[in-house]
């Protein structure tokens, strides 16, 4: 049975940094069945209409992670994204390279920064000699141990998260969602001896630049949920080391702050996070804001039922309750 075709308009990003001054968009229109994967359409365009189109792909089965690109501004694997819904919604399909990576040509980007960031987290098992390795066998884990990181091994390193991340876009000090999700995997692996050391290192190597915007979790085609694993890393890092960096001081300070009145005391939190020097640094901005919003100078009222709040802290905020 042949499916009816629909006219599909593609606007494809074209750029050769060696020759072109600026990128351009080239339009192709062809008739295709709506279930056609975008990668199939692009290969057809390259085979039949313009052999100079550059793109990366390999397995065509959403396993290799090569064909990640922007489809109508969303991070997608081209091989598993059909054209139909995109055309139905936007009337055309705009194809662009991944963000946050330099374009080498057309849809092919420089992956070196992505992999360099991955290397930052030492992405290999540092075997713990205390975890016995049975003679002639692989190093076994219990089902419960494996459950702790069951999502992360699904990662295919397609860099969709890296492309979607606003922290990566704004600051090279942030290693990116995939690197941190992979770090989580090693931190909770019982065979790895780097647990504590890995957490100490990452505290000063970008962990606290995560915005927790969940754009990575939304972009990930394999539901690895990097933002949630980064949150877990933050809580584990605090359990090991307490509040040492601005980010962890802010988290710990916020938690302590609410114990006073049940609501946030903004002025006090600045002190808790940034210390006396930080307060001085914030002073000009504080004065700027106080002109219109005098309330920032006042502590909030004390909520009713603070005795309950205090009891909840007493029950759950003890050192032995840490993850």
């Amino acid at each position: 049975m042949t499916e009816a075709t629909v006219p599909a308009t593609f606007d494809i990003y074209r750029f050769d940094p060696g020759h072109d001054r600026v990128p351009r968009y080239q339009r192709f229109t062809l008739d295709l069945p709506p279930h056609t994967p975008i990668l199939t359409a692009l290969l057809k365009i390259r085979a039949e209409l313009d052999p100079s189109l550059a793109l990366r792909y390999s397995c065509r089965s959403a396993i290799c992670g090569s064909c990640a690109m922007q489809v109508n501004s969303k991070s997608r694997l081209a091989c598993e994204t059909p054209i139909g819904p995109e055309l139905a919604r936007d009337g055309r399909i705009v194809i662009e390279p991944m963000r946050n990576q330099a374009v080498l040509r057309d849809l092919v980007v420089e992956q070196e920064p992505f992999w360099r960031n991955y290397d930052r987290i030492r992405p290999h098992l540092i075997l713990d000699p205390r975890h016995p390795m049975p003679e002639g066998r692989e190093n076994p884990m219990t089902t419960e141990e494996v459950e702790r990181f069951k999502e992360t091994p699904r990662c295919i390193a397609c860099a969709a998260c890296f492309s979607a991340c606003p922290a990566v876009e704004a600051d090279p000090a942030f290693p990116g969602p995939m690197a941190l999700a992979k770090l989580y995997r090693f931190v909770v692996d019982p065979r790895d001896q780097g647990h504590q050391d890995r957490l100490l290192r990452i505290q000063t190597d970008g962990l606290w630049l995560c915005l927790r915007c969940h754009l990575c979790t939304e972009a990930c085609p394999k539901d690895v949920r990097p933002s949630e694993r980064i949150r877990d890393l933050k809580e584990m890092a605090i359990a090991v080391q307490g509040g040492t960096e601005h980010g962890s001081k802010h988290a710990v300070g916020f938690k302590e702050n609410l114990r006073d009145r049940g609501l946030l005391n903004e002025m006090k939190l600045v002190r808790q996070t940034s210390g006396a020097v930080g307060v001085l640094e914030q002073l000009p901005q504080g004065i700027h804001i106080v002109r219109k919003k005098r309330e920032v100078l006042r502590a909030p009222h004390r909520i009713e039922g603070m005795d309950e709040v205090e009891k909840i802290y007493e029950a759950l905020d003890r050192p032995e309750e840490k993850p």
Partner: peptide, 10 residues
């Protein structure tokens, strides 16, 4: 989104 980074269950 901050206090849970210090203690989620709490």
């Amino acid at each position: 989104g901050f206090s849970d980074e210090a203690n989620e269950v709490l």
